[in-house]
Nucleic acid binder design. Sequence first.
DNA 1: GGAATTCCTTGATCTGGGTCAAAAAAACGG
DNA 2: CCGTTTTTTTGACCCAGATCAAGGAATTCC
Lengths: 228, 228
Amino acid sequence: MNIRSFLSRLPLFNGLPEEDLKALAGIVLDRSHAAGESIFTEGDRAAGLNIVFSGRVKIFKLASNGKEQILHIMGPGEPFAEVPVFQGGHYPASAEAIEASRVLFIPRDGLTDMIRRNPALALDMLAVLSRRLREFASTIENLSLRGVPERLSAYLLHLSDLAGGSAEFELDIKKGLIANLLGTTGESLSRVLGKMSQAGMIRVGGKKITILDRAALADVAAARQALD
Amino acid sequence: MNIRSFLSRLPLFNGLPEEDLKALAGIVLDRSHAAGESIFTEGDRAAGLNIVFSGRVKIFKLASNGKEQILHIMGPGEPFAEVPVFQGGHYPASAEAIEASRVLFIPRDGLTDMIRRNPALALDMLAVLSRRLREFASTIENLSLRGVPERLSAYLLHLSDLAGGSAEFELDIKKGLIANLLGTTGESLSRVLGKMSQAGMIRVGGKKITILDRAALADVAAARQALD
DNA sequence: GGAATTCCTTGATCTGGGTCAAAAAAACGG
DNA sequence: CCGTTTTTTTGACCCAGATCAAGGAATTCC
């Protein structure tokens, strides 16, 4: 897949005229990152928009004591680091490749020019940021108002949805990362998974999860039912 | 102050041509809300953008057990509920007037038309959403990676900055609301304020706060120093 | 301006989930 | 494929901060 047709397939750039698409492909930088390699660090001066071409990237905040909170895990086709393009000029969080990845980089000026010329792109971009605000609002709600069992059941149900509603699916990332995404520790995650298995709601075999009692899991997610 | 000139003074609409400004003033609805009155509820269908004309409004998430997490407190001139204008069509959180308020409402279609016609407005709107994403990222960091004393000292330092760096200032809202904004309870807030006073970092007299040792407070905010 | 309501503080207690440590299980590299 | 490293699990313990309860202090509203 070449970059030009990859870009044209992105929802964000759908409806962009041929010439702009061509211009875009012309100014895009293509960068490769090994697993574990840092892409940028919170506070760095930012010069443009990033898009995952292949692989996976985590966006995270790091505390002084080393604990991390993952904000997003981005996969192929997903844009990230839009914020500094439109406001502030420096990254609000850090990014690291969690597997070997190729990341496209669109310099700021090229992108803003294009937005000025294409109102549809502006509205698409506004929709992207709005979706992200929705996700963040939900993350805040999770961290502040819900416990680890609630968050984990909701996450498992979400993964099942992504897998087309199948009761059986694979955890897409290591458990330690899931813990940091849900705002907890590996130890707690492990214990809660254990309790859910014991309660007969799920079966866990390595990365494979089977949902045995979806209704019970939904009850835990909605805090209608405790775990022990 | 009439609505037309109020709108023209907002950073968001700066640079909008006269005719658009006039059109805007023509389609705006002006709604009054008593203190404690709900403006909208999470999940409601949303039909446009809101802007605080006078008074103050809290945007919040409510848990099933009644606990609330405040996402923002908006004052005069601040737009809110942009998200459903651009994505999803329903409110991601609830809003309530915390004092008698007038709220302007701009119907969705009028606004998106105007954005289509004015690239500068599109970029301003993108900047507004980006700033909000930055704030949310910081809230997530606070909730997940920092303790209540850290969050509170940072908040007090922030209020002092807003007051022009003065060591003496008034809490802008009731302490219970501050607690819900910081993701804690009134009781904990009260105790932490007590410890800070005892440590000689601040003096508290009702709503009046005096910062006695800014450096120490900054150390607590940055988790370089514990409280007891 | 006094009664009623709401807000804040303080004390006692409880608990979810974090930390530390070590074993078990997987994944990886040569 | 075997040894090494990384990840996950399990156990024991601890602690920040929530909850419950009850006074005290402010506001609010006739």
